[in-house]
Nucleic acid binder design. Structure first.
Lengths: 189, 189
DNA sequence: AAATAAGTGTGATCCAAATCACACTTTATT
DNA sequence: AATAAAGTGTGATTTGGATCACACTTATTT
């Protein structure tokens, strides 16, 4: 739970009492490779804060093609957020790519923490602000960039992921075919 | 300012005293058609809450092509949010398509209101949550849908905009060429 | 260590949408 | 009301990237 405290305190300092109040709202879970945290169609009870490991948040279209909405690593939050916030069934999957640990928490917890502790409402607001900006940047990239530019941007943002996960997943994240992505780095250097 | 109060109270009720405290952080501005609220390169002092009119938030790539990040109508917030939050220069434009009025407010105001009034921090958190979900839906659409599906989705979400703004802007929002979009509705019905 | 599965590179082909071009229409401007 | 500007539909052409196909490589599994 020390990681949780450090994580929150990157945004707002906490007293010991405050942290004692926050702690019980989170539980720890070990996750093995290939394990699903969320499965399409299921109820989405939790959001997750990644302590370690790598995870992909993705969905599958009618033709069975996969699209990756988000990769998550240490200190990232993840869920099928539409389903989580709107309390509907999942339209996405979360699968573990490298085993690790996560903290999980319910929507009721998030709301209770936000109500009881102004600091936590602040924390979530700041997190959402940053999330919003990241998504907007991604939209701009999807609207106006070539596969080449998308790949370069990805390499800049997540140099470590480039090494650690299969390239085909990167293609699914960038909205480019596996083959096109492969030709990018074989041609260009 | 009544509109502001009603807008906030959709999310959290306010006492008269609270609203008196909030009011001074917002100013009114009338905006004429074709007027710019934000211009690329400029400092971004304000975010805007639309009271009336229609606005487009867009950017221009190296080749001079335009891409629309957001349309804004009554009760929508808009800014070049990366520049606004990170206090950097604008990489986008906001232009008025139909004249109207907006309220504007600074980053300092947003932060002060959030600090002083837990309710306002809550308000902004809820707004950001919804914004986040909307952007994520848009990413999914850009990743996996055909021009046809994008157009249908747009028609469902903004049936009124379809009538009121030039179709070429819709194309710029959907990430599809003007011509392709035009062929969609001339062929399909 | 052998067998199976998952991931990757690369050529050949195809196709949806971009681009180019231009006439027509609607909307601003003077 | 006349002129200019902006927006739109539609054909012809081009093209970037998807798809298909398959060999090779690297991981898992037993």
């Amino acid at each position: 739970m020390n990681k949780l405290r450090a994580h929150i305190e990157k945004i707002t300092p906490l007293t010991d009492e405050e942290f004692e109040q926050i702690k019980p709202f989170f539980s720890l879970k070990k996750v093995r490779k290939n394990q699903y945290l969320i499965h399409e169609g299921d109820e989405v009870k939790y959001e997750y804060l990644v302590l370690s490991g790598i995870y992909k948040v993705f969905y599958v279209d009618q033709q069975g093609k996969e699209y990756i909405v988000q990769f998550a690593q240490e200190n990232w939050w993840m869920s099928d957020y539409r389903a989580f916030f709107k309390q509907t069934n999942a339209s996405m999957f979360i699968e573990c790519l490298e085993e690790g640990e996560v903290l999980y928490s319910t929507l009721q917890s998030r709301e209770k923490l936000s109500t009881d502790l102004h600091k936590m409402e602040h924390f979530f607001r700041v997190k959402l602000t940053n999330g919003y900006l990241a998504l907007q940047d991604r939209i701009k990239l999807l609207l106006s960039s070539t596969p080449q530019q998308r790949y370069e941007e990805f390499s800049k943002l997540y140099p470590d992921l480039l090494q650690r996960i299969p390239k085909k997943y990167i293609a699914e994240f960038l909205g480019v075919s596996r083959e096109t992505l492969s030709r990018l780095y074989s041609n260009s250097k």
